[in-house]
């Protein structure tokens, strides 16, 4: 009896060891990683480039939306709200595919990077716009009046008095949205843009080993985790002030 139990235990221990070995072989295979790391590096740079293009574009678009809203022209505001809500109801992936496969049917041939940028701009500008709008609305009328009473014009008042305060009031939302935008860039893999996720999948296909996918996930974590931490801190601080 004792012998059987002992043998069973040894067997399960062996199986465990085999499991760990399989896990390392499939997920943390250094040999595979060494082979495909140039691909991943290429993808990583593409992802960084995408972020560097998409985030400022979206912020600029959002500012245009929010500042246009702040004039409080009724028909214009209806239009802006409609724009914002329209794109907030639209999954970014659907938008991306629609722009990517739709534009050529319209006879417009653009490089895939441009198609991706157009889709992301339409999407992110609506989110940033909504955030900046809330920020601008949170600044009391007295601030504008004080600025105008000293001779600042409308644009100077917006740039030097309203926006600095507005941005500070909605900083957590801005960072949170920037995190979302950076995550969105992974969607570009669906339209074959050679960014990090795409390159990870290519590498997996070449090596028949999922290690590159795990590496991709870890790279995203390293890139975005600090932002998540920062955000948790900021959110807690703003909430405490309420």
């Amino acid at each position: 009896m004792g012998g059987v139990a002992l043998r069973l235990e040894a067997l399960s221990r062996a199986r465990e060891a085999a499991d760990v070995e399989a896990l390392i072989y499939n997920f943390f295979n250094l040999e595979v990683l060494l082979k495909v790391h140039p691909l991943l590096l290429k993808g990583f740079w593409m992802t960084i480039q995408l972020c560097i293009l998409v985030v400022p574009l979206g912020i600029a678009g959002g500012l245009v939306v929010a500042v246009a809203y702040s004039f409080h022209v009724r028909w214009l505001n209806w239009l802006l709200i409609a724009y914002v809500d329209f794109f907030r109801s639209f999954p970014p992936l659907v938008l991306l595919i629609l722009v990517f496969y739709g534009l050529p049917f319209l006879g417009i041939e653009v490089p895939s990077l441009i198609a991706v940028l157009i889709a992301f701009l339409l999407n992110t500008a609506s989110y940033y716009g909504e955030i900046f709008r809330a920020g601008i609305e949170s600044i009391g009328r007295g601030q504008r009046e004080a600025a105008r009473s000293t001779g600042l014009n409308g644009i100077q008042t917006m740039v030097f008095v309203v926006l600095p305060q507005a941005v500070r009031n909605v900083l957590p939302d801005l960072i949170s949205n920037t995190l979302e935008v950076m995550k969105f860039t992974a969607l570009a893999s669906v339209v074959a843009l050679p960014e990090l996720l795409r390159m990870g999948r290519v590498a997996q296909g070449l090596t028949y080993n999922p290690t590159p996918l795990i590496a991709v996930a870890l790279i995203y974590l390293a890139l975005l985790w600090p932002i998540v931490r920062l955000l948790s801190r900021l959110e807690r601080r703003t909430m405490a002030k309420r």
Partner: peptide, 24 residues
Amino acid sequence: VDAFRALPPIVIMIVFYFALPFVG
């Protein structure tokens, strides 16, 4: 919680769908 907030959902799905079967 931090990990699932940081990772793009598409990366999570692809890892679950294409990588996890390799470990059973």
